[in-house]
Computed example of a mutant assay.
Amino acid sequence: MSFLGEKELKEQIKLIIPQYRPKFIDSNKYELCLGASYCASDSKFRVLQAEDNQIVVNPGEFYFLETYETVEMPNDVMGFISIKASIKFKGLVNVSGFHVDPHFRGKIVFSVLNAGPSPINLTIEEPLFQIWFAKLTSASESYNGKHQNQTGVNGKLLNDHMSGSDNASLGDLQKQIKDLDNKYEKVLVLASVLVVGILSLVFKAHLS
């Protein structure tokens, strides 16, 4: 297996990414852009559409994001995917797979988590993801996985991956912890008032 260099990438990219734009070829990799559909743990995992060409990934929340482009992998080429370093440094972490199977066709969907302290603003059709291509020593059998012909973030994707899920995001857990802290503080205040009241009654009884 060997990776496609810049020359080979420029020669083959149109066959792999029909919607490719030359400006997004960067050395031996292609920069994939962000699509408009997404879902988020803080929106109860409903399929949403970007507003004003922006998606805001809140701290501690889990999101499904899609590529703007559709890829059509040859049966003798494998893809390796990542998020651009400039976005990763803000805290956006890819928690899904890191490769694209030979013969896969469709949009790539990333599962991401904002592990940073601040919201991360993402712009539709701007480069967010990266893909490198590796030539295999022999062709693979046709890919027939459930993601074949994937059209991005949609109801089918959520049914496949989130059906019956009741997992709390980090943001949910932080809120629950904060709520417990507030309740604990209220209990301490009430307990202190009761103790002071009881001691006051005892002291008055002792004086009398």
Results as ranks from 00 to 15, higher is better:
residue 182 N to Q: 12
residue 136 L to A: 00
residue 175 K to E: 06
residue 183 K to I: 09
residue 172 D to F: 00
residue 153 V to K: 06
residue 182 N to H: 08
residue 140 S to W: 10
residue 148 Q to P: 04
residue 195 V to E: 09
residue 191 A to H: 13
residue 178 K to A: 05
residue 181 D to T: 08
residue 174 Q to T: 04
residue 149 N to I: 07
residue 170 L to Y: 04
residue 190 L to A: 13
residue 199 L to V: 04
residue 159 N to G: 02
residue 134 A to K: 14
residue 191 A to V: 09
residue 159 N to T: 00
residue 183 K to C: 02
residue 182 N to L: 09
residue 149 N to S: 05
residue 184 Y to F: 15
residue 173 L to V: 05
residue 141 E to C: 01
residue 191 A to E: 10
residue 175 K to C: 07
residue 189 V to P: 12
residue 183 K to S: 06
residue 146 K to D: 06
residue 134 A to I: 08
residue 183 K to H: 05
residue 172 D to L: 00
residue 147 H to F: 12
residue 137 T to G: 15
residue 169 S to G: 05
residue 155 G to P: 06
residue 153 V to L: 05
residue 135 K to E: 02
residue 197 G to I: 01
residue 194 L to V: 09
residue 157 L to Q: 05
residue 166 D to R: 15
residue 142 S to G: 04
residue 137 T to D: 15
residue 186 K to I: 06
residue 149 N to D: 02
residue 174 Q to N: 08
residue 167 N to P: 08
residue 144 N to L: 12
residue 182 N to W: 06
residue 170 L to W: 00
residue 177 I to L: 01
residue 172 D to K: 04
residue 144 N to Y: 12
residue 167 N to R: 14
residue 193 V to W: 14
residue 193 V to I: 15
residue 161 H to Y: 13
residue 166 D to V: 14
residue 185 E to P: 13
residue 158 L to Q: 03
residue 197 G to Y: 09
residue 190 L to P: 08
residue 163 S to K: 15
residue 185 E to S: 15
residue 187 V to G: 10
residue 166 D to W: 14
residue 149 N to G: 06
residue 151 T to C: 10
residue 139 A to R: 07
residue 191 A to I: 04
residue 177 I to H: 03
residue 174 Q to I: 05
residue 168 A to N: 11
residue 164 G to A: 03
residue 170 L to Q: 02
residue 167 N to G: 13
residue 164 G to F: 01
residue 186 K to Y: 13
residue 193 V to M: 15
residue 187 V to K: 12
residue 188 L to S: 15
residue 139 A to C: 00
residue 199 L to G: 04
residue 186 K to Q: 14
residue 200 S to Q: 11
residue 135 K to P: 00
residue 134 A to N: 13
residue 196 V to G: 05
residue 188 L to A: 13
residue 146 K to Y: 09
residue 140 S to P: 09
residue 148 Q to T: 07
residue 146 K to L: 11
residue 182 N to S: 10
residue 173 L to N: 02
residue 162 M to F: 10
residue 163 S to D: 01
residue 154 N to F: 03
residue 188 L to C: 12
residue 140 S to H: 11
residue 160 D to P: 01
residue 156 K to H: 07
residue 158 L to M: 04
residue 190 L to C: 10
residue 175 K to P: 03
residue 185 E to G: 14
residue 180 L to P: 07
residue 200 S to K: 13
residue 200 S to M: 09
residue 148 Q to V: 00
residue 175 K to Q: 09
residue 164 G to H: 08
residue 134 A to P: 05
residue 135 K to H: 02
residue 184 Y to N: 13
residue 140 S to R: 10
residue 198 I to T: 08
residue 186 K to T: 14
residue 200 S to H: 12
residue 134 A to L: 09
residue 143 Y to T: 05
residue 190 L to G: 10
residue 197 G to F: 05
residue 178 K to E: 10
residue 191 A to G: 10
residue 153 V to R: 07
